[in-house]
């Protein structure tokens, strides 16, 4: 039951697009004591399920496809396969550290952007 509730909440965050991609890894490693690599693999499947359902809503509302996007997709795929292979024979502490650093950086950037948006909104009101 707990898994279902947590999954629903994290999937809502994924759908909102406010940086929920890593939360399921955190839940699995810190709360469920999963190993780092299996948590990452399970998170990918979780993201596919929640992300695809969110994608249908976005595609219905917006025209998201562009030449840039197709180029991005084509470029990322081989790099992703390479990264995933490297993860399999790396000390799990390295991706754990890397994910931690990534979360701290993205949290700080996201926080700064939001504070700037708050200030801008306040200035426009005054």
């Amino acid at each position: 039951m707990m898994d279902a509730i947590v999954s629903f909440i994290i999937a809502v965050i994924v759908g909102l697009g406010i940086g929920g991609g890593g939360f399921f890894v955190i839940y699995l490693t810190l709360c469920m004591n999963y190993g780092q690599i299996i948590a990452q693999g399970t998170n990918l499947l979780f993201f596919l399920v929640s992300g695809i359902s969110a994608l249908f809503i976005h595609i219905r509302r917006k025209s998201v496809f562009s030449p840039e996007l197709l180029f991005i997709i084509a470029t990322t795929l081989p790099a992703t396969a390479l990264g995933a292979h490297i993860a399999d024979f790396t000390d799990p502490k390295i991706p754990t550290f890397f994910l931690g650093a990534l979360l701290v950086i993205s949290g700080i950037i996201s926080g700064i952007r939001t504070v700037k948006a708050f200030i801008k909104e306040k200035n426009e009101k005054n």
Binding site: A4, A11, T42, F56, D88
Partner: peptide
């Protein structure tokens, strides 16, 4: 490196959560 059994349990909430989040966006 994937726990497919866990995903079987959370498939429905993950799907519903994704839809709810995208609508709320």
């Amino acid at each position: 490196n994937v726990d497919t059994e866990l995903m079987g349990r959370v498939f429905i909430p993950a799907t519903l959560g994704g839809i709810v989040g995208a609508c709320l966006m």
